[in-house]
């Protein structure tokens, strides 16, 4: 009886541990600070222009979670800088608000890079994880 209850207790502890790991999931932006909101709204406002540049092949999504100017002299440098600045603000907010280590920003960037690759439309230039640029 004592042995069974001991085993049951250990099983319960293990279950609780793994369930808590699974539910611990989301690294949301928990607080929409003015800086973060400005970055999000900036990206939203600029989205159509960025899409236009991507459609023309002037800009592409690199494997670090940022946009990259692929063709010089066609304009778009200011937009690219502003977009990357806003993305950086968002990534840093995720790390800071979820008490992640400073090194975790690399993981955040990689995840967002993959997300952008998945969302890229046919014809857009994307950089694969290995580093080579392809047209989707």
């Amino acid at each position: 009886m004592k042995k069974t209850s001991g085993i049951l207790l250990v099983l319960c502890l293990y279950t609780f541990y793994y369930v808590s790991l699974v539910c611990a999931g989301a690294y949301d932006i928990k607080e929409l600070t003015p800086v973060v909101k400005e970055a999000l709204d900036g990206r939203k406002a600029r989205n159509d222009q960025m899409q236009s540049l991507k459609d023309k092949g002037i800009v592409g999504e690199n494997n670090k979670g940022y946009v990259q100017l692929l063709v010089e002299g066609q304009g778009g440098k200011g937009l690219v800088n502003a977009e990357n600045h806003d993305r950086k603000v968002i990534y840093e907010a995720i790390v800071e608000q979820n008490n992640l280590d400073a090194e975790a920003i690399k993981a955040v960037e990689k995840v967002f890079a993959q997300e952008r690759r998945d969302r890229a439309k046919p014809g857009e230039k994307i950089q694969e994880e290995a580093g080579n640029w392809i047209t989707k």
């Binding site: 999931g25 690294y27 939203k44 280590d101 993981a107 995840v111």
Partner: peptide, 22 residues
Amino acid sequence: YITIDIKGLKDTADNIEDYVSG
């Protein structure tokens, strides 16, 4: 070694990109 829940990060990325795209 820090364990990060990639699925959780992906969900966050999904939400943010959904908002940015309108």
